[in-house]
Write a protein that binds this DNA or RNA. Sequence first.
DNA 1: GGGACTTATCTACAATGTAGACTGTAGGCG
DNA 2: CGCCTACAGTCTACATTGTAGATAAGTCCC
Lengths: 230, 230
Amino acid sequence: MSPAEKPAPAPAPKSRLSRELVLSAALALVDSEGLEALTMRRLGQELGRDPMSLYRYAENRAALLDGVSELVLNELEIVPDDPDWQAQLRRIAHCLRELALRHPNVVPLLVTRPLSTPLGLRPLGTLRPLEQILALLIDAGFGPADALHVYRAYYGYLYGHILNELQEFIVDPEENEALLRLGLHRLPPKEFPRLRALAPVLADYDGMSELDEGITILLTGLAARLSPTA
Amino acid sequence: MSPAEKPAPAPAPKSRLSRELVLSAALALVDSEGLEALTMRRLGQELGRDPMSLYRYAENRAALLDGVSELVLNELEIVPDDPDWQAQLRRIAHCLRELALRHPNVVPLLVTRPLSTPLGLRPLGTLRPLEQILALLIDAGFGPADALHVYRAYYGYLYGHILNELQEFIVDPEENEALLRLGLHRLPPKEFPRLRALAPVLADYDGMSELDEGITILLTGLAARLSPTA
DNA sequence: GGGACTTATCTACAATGTAGACTGTAGGCG
DNA sequence: CGCCTACAGTCTACATTGTAGATAAGTCCC
C-alpha cells in the first residue's frame, strides 16, 4: 500500500480530503489509541492536514464522533426479508457482538451518543438498523406495535450483553486471568466472598454462547407472548 | 481579599470539606446541568472553594466521575436474603430504572466507566450490587457458576432496557410527541416507512411495564433452564 | 509558643475546541 | 486571455480545560 507506515505522523498523502477519508482515519485512530486520542489536532496530523480543515467535514467534534459511530454501525449487515426472523435476529446479534469486539473503543459512543440526541435527529446510519429490524418483524407477521416491543426487548438485551462482555474483557487477553485474580484479591474478603470465589469462572467467559443462550430465551419467550399472525 | 460574594453561585457554606460533600455537590451539578458542566473549576465555585482543593478528595477528574457513579449506585437497595429471588430481582430492576430516570445524566457514567476499569479495580460501591445479587441467587439454590450466568443475563438486559428507555425519553416531557413527529418527519419516507409510521406508538412508551415484561420473560426462561436445586 | 500535620489557595502551563480572517487554487464567463 | 466567484485548506488567536508545584492558612499536641 503506502510506501511507509511510521509510528511518527503519517506525512501527507496529499489528495483531496473527503468525509469518508476523515471518518475512517478517525475510526482508525480510535481503534488503535482510544477515544481520548481523537483530538482535532491529532487527527489533522494523522491526515497531514491542518486541524481546521476537518471542520469542512464535520461541524463539531461531537459530530465527528457521531460520524464514527455511524461508520461502525454501517458494518452491520441486516437482511430485512429473511423469512426466518428468529434466525436473522440471532445472526444480527452475533454480527453486532463481533463488531463491538472489533471496535471496543467505539462502544461507548454507540451507547452514549444516542442519549444526547433525540431519536428523530440522529444520523441516518444510526437509525437504519431500527428500520430494518422493524421491517423484518413486520414482514414476519407482527403488528407494528408488537414489532416495536420485540425490537426493544431484543436490542436492549443485545446492548446490555455487549456492555457486560466488554467490561469483563478489557484487559490484555493473556494475563486476563492473572490480573483478574489480582484485582479480586484486593476486595475485602468479608464483604465480597462470592465474587472472590468466582475468580476462575469469571476468567473464562464465553461471550458468544452466553449471548446466544440469552437471545434464545428472549426470542422464544417473546414468540410465545406475541406470535406473528402469519 | 474583600468578602465579595458573587451574584449567581452558592457563595460559601464555609465548613470543612469532605468526600461526601464534594461528591454530592458533584452529583447535584451533574443532575441539574449535565455531565459537561462538571468541571473542577465549576464544582469548586459551587462549593465556595478553590478548584484545587477538590484534589484532596478525588485524585482525578476521572476518579471524581467514578465517585459520582458510586454515589448513585449506593441509592440502590438490595435485600440479599429475600427468599423469593425472582420477586427481588424484579424489585431491583424497577429500583434501578427509577434511579436512572432520576439521574439520567449519570447513566452514561454508569455504563461507560466500567469499560475503562478492569473489574477488580472498580470502586467497591460499584461491585456491591454484583456481590449481593450473587448472594441472592446462591442462597436461592443456584450453583455459583449458574448464579453468574443468571446475573449476567439479568443485568445485561436491565442495562440495555435503561439505555433504550433513556434514548426515547430525553427531551422535554411535554413536547415529546410533537418533537418526535417533527424529527421523524425529517426522515426520507422511502427509506424509513415503518419508523415514520410508528410515530404515535413511539410517543407513548411505558418503560415500566416494558421492563417488567422483559424481566418476566428472562426470569422464567432462566428458571426453566437452570433451576435452583433448593 | 513551636513544631508537624492536614487542608486550602495561588500561580503557572500545556492541551484542547473552535471562531474569524486569510490564502490559494480551480473553474465559469465575458 | 483576464477577471470573478466559490470553495478547500491554513494561520492566528483565544477562552477553557485538567493539573503540577510552591505557598499559605488552620489545627492539634506537647
